[in-house]
Amino acid sequence: MVDTSLIVQVQVSLGDFMLDVDLSISMKGRLAVIGPNGSGKTTLLKTIVGSVYPDKGHILVGDRVLSDTKLRIEVPVEDRQVGYVPQDYTLFPHMNVINNVAFGLSTGGRRGSRACKKEIALRMLGRFGCQQIAYRPVQQLSGGERQQVALAQALVTEPRLLLLDEPLVALDMTSRRVVRLLLQNYLSQLDIPTVFTTHDVRDVVSLADSVIVLSRGKVVQMGTLEELQKQPCNDFLVEFLGQQ
């Protein structure tokens, strides 16, 4: 039996745009989604997280159905157990770092004392080496710190899948190199599948074990980076790989 942990087979139409994707990744798989602007990368992540509804198809994480249009199942975003970090590392500006991280521990009527939740949040920040910024307002964080706090926030609820939308795009070149190394380390320790979008081949080299190429909402090629390098399917991919 194939150890498949994420299956996405969906068609989504947004006005004139149509996303038609069929992909699956394994338990600890790290999938990079690449493609030109407007190819549907973010729409794919939003469909998996549940903020965009598919017209047709299904999404499964492990044996759990998140969406199935035939069975009329559409699990609400809050019940999907999918961690999502958008491009700009969205944090809640009215909370400090630790309250941002602990937010997911107090939603949906989760039980536990406030002290206990803060302790868990602190431990999570510790995993990212960020305990010293726990009580700082998020407005005072650097780009790299924001990214780590956003990751800690997404992972503290122990999601079954992690989605990262261009995880390094908001950083300058120097921080990008440092954070990429950190991210490589974190993701390799995770026991859940990760899907991330990127425009940078270095992210693919460091973080992904497989890649899909989207063009106008369709998967035009998939495989490992080496496989893609052997036979790039379009000009975008040739240019993308040329960044190396």
Partner: peptide, 17 residues
């Protein structure tokens, strides 16, 4: 930003929360 809603809900918050 609409991303704020998505993030909050992905962290388990209901629409009212």
């Amino acid at each position: 930003s609409p991303d704020v809603w998505v993030v909050a809900r992905s962290l388990g918050a209901s629409p009212i929360e």
